[in-house]
Amino acid sequence: MQGIIIKGIGGFYYIKTEDGVIECKARGKFRYTDVTPMVGDKVDIQIEKGKGVIEKIFPRDSELIRPQVANVTQAFVVFAIKNPDLNFELLNKFLIQCEHNNIVPMVCLNKIDLSSETEIKEVSDMLSGTGYQILLINAKTGVKTDRLKEMLEDNITVLCGPSGAGKSTLLNKLLGKEYMKTGNISEKIGRGKHTTRHSELIEVNNGLVVDTPGFSTLEINYIEKDDLRNYFPEFYDYNDKCKFRGCLHYKEPGCKVIEAVEKGKINKARYEFYIKYLQEINERRNNRW
């Protein structure tokens, strides 16, 4: 019998199958492999003495480390422009993580009632040329959440973004019920409390959604410097047109990306983030020796 892991707690895995949700344990052989069952995994199971056992884990199309979830096809990257203030560097890191894992991101700017047109335009300008969709939403009142609900069909969707941005509120709105407890923004630290306890796939509109704990920092130190340029969609049209093959778009002469930045065809703030992170990768690499 085949199914998909929708929840894992204390060594037990809950598998969604055509016959309903079945509680399973993993076969002992997985202890001796590099593969551990993960929420989102497609699996083969057997029923032995009335209990389910995971026999096989199918190859993953994508795999996120934090949150730990497999086979995600799209991400709702939820950020508030105000309360808490939007962290552009963190937003860019989430987008890089999506690109690295072949996950299609939808940028959801929440709490638009607290945002000015100038602030919204700043985000739109930064992401111009990336091809990313930006949706202005209000998760609390339901503004544009119907559009997001339509996008869930036939996808495994992860809600990600910093704590306090409104992911749990958005999930509750998509489900039409109070599923996740929501927290208030702490006035002292300017971010939300960790209110989500574990990753779980929930069926919504013929799709599956995972809500995960919010967090305000994100490490992407697994990215190599030669790969980083591939995670900026606005570079795609220029990557093969530079003077030097393998151009990192840093200080090389004849770089078409630098030229596009100077002409205003690529957003300068995004490019500056690219350079900053490229330098961080170099520093980490040098410190290894």
Rank of each mutant, 00 (worst) to 15 (best):
P67L: 04
V69D: 08
N71H: 11
V72R: 04
Q74W: 10
Q74E: 11
V77A: 03
A80Q: 05
A80I: 04
I81P: 00
K82C: 02
N83G: 01
N83E: 15
L86N: 03
L86G: 01
L86K: 03
L90G: 06
L95M: 11
L95N: 07
Q97C: 11
C98T: 05
V104M: 10
M106S: 09
L114T: 15
K121V: 05
E122A: 14
E122M: 12
V123E: 11
M126Q: 14
M126T: 11
M126H: 08
G129N: 07
A139W: 10
A139I: 12
V143C: 06
K144R: 14
T145K: 02
T145M: 05
L148I: 09
M151K: 13
L152P: 06
L152A: 08
E153N: 13
D154T: 15
I156C: 06
C160N: 08
P162E: 13
S163K: 06
A165S: 13
G166F: 03
K167A: 02
T169M: 04
L170C: 06
L175D: 08
L175M: 15
L175G: 12
G176Y: 09
G176L: 10
G176I: 09
K177T: 12
E178A: 09
E178T: 12
Y179A: 05
Y179K: 05
T182D: 10
